[in-house]
Each structure stands twice: as C-alpha cells, then as structure tokens.
C-alpha cells in the first residue's frame, strides 16, 4: 500500500493532466516541471484530450506482482495528438486486431487492486475509439 504516492499522482492518472511550456508551447506528459525541449520552467497544468494512436504495443503474459489478475493484458506506447508518447495499457481489446497507427482514446480504469483489504488504484488506459452514430443509424432505419 502506497496511499500517499498514488494520491499525489491521481490528478495526472485520472484525467491525463500534464503540463504546457509557456515558453515554447510544447505539451508535456508526464509532468516534469521543466520543458524537455527548451529547459524553461513548465508548471502550467494541461489536460490532454486523450486522443492518440498506437505507436507500439505488446501483450504481457508474465505480469509483475500486483497485475496477475489482469493478465494477459496489452500494453502500448500511445502517441497523443498533442505530441507526447504515453506508456499505458490498452483495454477492451479482446478479439480486436491491434495495429500500429490504430486510433485510441483515454479511459480511466482500475490499474491495480491491492487485495480485498487495500485500496483500488485508478488511472488512464486507452481503448479503440468507439464508433459513434449508432443512434442516428437506428433512427434512420426506423424512418
């Protein structure tokens, strides 16, 4: 149990909050307080859209301790539309063909569950973008 540590990170984890450099405009995730491009201080919070595409991916068959209940699960580097790469799990992908370049969107899910007595850690994962428009199609069909 690392309650304080997860609590410190939850703002970043729940909603993909990073930073923007006020000097050169680069969007930063994870937050690091110093711009990786121009080394200027960068402490202005920036909430990412959560949209991106798969840059690389793998399936973890041998999980680290704490993740056994979820295995096998898919992990990826996601290139956010705002620029940064993010390392995260892909979720809701059973039966889906995963490819580099595939559009994904951020969701907040359970990252780990420290047993029935511990806390639940929530954070960002990415899933294939859900196609919209089903209601419109249904309505048109009804007409």
């Amino acid at each position: 149990m690392e309650i304080a540590r997860h609590w410190r990170l939850q703002r970043h984890r729940y909603s993909l909050v990073g930073e923007v450099c006020n000097h050169c405009g680069v969007k930063i995730f994870p937050a690091r307080d110093v711009c990786p491009e121009c080394n200027a201080p960068a402490k202005t919070p920036y909430t990412f859209s959560g949209k991106g595409e798969v840059y690389s991916y793998s399936t973890v068959h041998h999980p680290p301790e704490g993740f056994e209940h979820f295995a096998p699960y898919v992990v990826a580097l996601v290139r956010l539309v705002e620029g940064p790469l993010v390392a995260a799990q892909l979720t809701d992908v059973e039966g889906e063909k995963i490819e580099i370049g595939m559009p994904v969107e951020m969701v907040t899910r359970k990252l780990r569950d420290d047993g029935s007595k511990g806390t639940i850690v929530y954070g960002y994962k990415f899933r294939p973008v859900i196609a919209g428009g089903a209601a419109v199609v249904a309505k048109d069909a009804a007409v």
């Binding site: 729940y14 979820f70 799990q89 979720t91 969701v107 899910r109 359970k110 990252l111 929530y122």
Partner: peptide, 13 residues
Amino acid sequence: PGLDEDVATMSLE
C-alpha cells in the same frame, strides 16, 4: 463489466 471496470470507472465515463 471488464476486469478493470467498476462503478467508479463506469460512472466516470
């Protein structure tokens, strides 16, 4: 629900 879903994550979406 998925293995990583509960009422908190679903409510959030």
